[in-house]
Design a protein around this nucleic acid. Structure first.
Lengths: 134, 134
DNA sequence: TATTTATTAATAATCATTCTAATATGAAAA
DNA sequence: TTTTCATATTAGAATGATTATTAATAAATA
């Protein structure tokens, strides 16, 4: 019997560590965040492994890549459709679990696009950043 | 009399070229797109000038920086609030000029964030990409 | 004109991400 | 058990976008 539960994804120790770090994580970590944490446990862990694993997970639908942070890609293990709120100062991201009606009027011109999904970015200032600047 | 109409922004030939390229542009160009076009007219134009000008315009509220493209920043000279639709294959971006009610229920937990704005990203496949892949 | 200020250009530096090549691992086959 | 084979990992180089630095230039002001 294979060690990947026949899902075409080998559960190596490094991957298990990344998966366990991501599981239930609500911080929307970057590749660097993940590397920093996991490399404490696996000091020889390489950045490439983090990116490779994230890429595999993304292709398998296990995580979502967020483009909301202008500086770097952020990853969300929660693949339920939901939206996000980002602090424009410190880049903290929190979930917004509210459904909105984002259907486009049938006659609206989308220039031939076939729409497959959507995502709302809310911008704001978080509690901590509000405190530290009046 | 200054040549910047007293707005603290010198209208140099390079800047005028960038401004005129951006004016009414609906392609949501990247810095590279802009550089490629303007440097034909100003062969000595540097990338730094493009970035500096975009940065000044952004700070002055003349353009909006979009984070919707995972690969690079895109710029939109239309600063009226609106949303966007991106082709997940070729990264073409088109405007969505529809207003949506994105108000959050008063009692919704935003973890102390003060919300200042929002933006909807619609994902899809454009006409050309649909054609070239069935 | 002299001085200051801002802008540009060239280039170096940085940072996130991707690629490459060599090695290692582990499951299946012999 | 050994071999095979596909896949994963590593280290480091390469890439690409962006930012920073600096010197030269041009414009504005005194």
């Amino acid at each position: 019997m294979k060690n990947d539960n026949n899902i075409g994804f080998k559960l190596t120790p490094q991957r298990l560590a990344i998966l366990s770090y991501l599981d239930g994580n609500k911080d929307h970590p970057s590749a660097e965040d993940i590397y920093n944490v996991i490399s404490r446990v696996f000091p020889t862990m390489s950045f490439a492994t983090v990116y490779n694993t994230l890429d595999s997970l993304k292709k398998r639908g296990g995580i979502t890549e967020l483009t909301i942070d202008p500086d770097k890609k952020r990853f969300d293990p929660n693949t339920e459709p939901h939206h996000h709120l980002i602090c424009v100062r410190c880049r903290r991201i929190v979930d917004v679990h509210i459904g909105f009606d984002l259907s486009l009027p049938a006659l609206h011109n989308t220039e031939g696009f076939e729409i497959t999904g959507n995502h709302i970015e809310f911008y704001g200032v978080c509690r901590e950043c509000k405190k530290s600047s009046g």
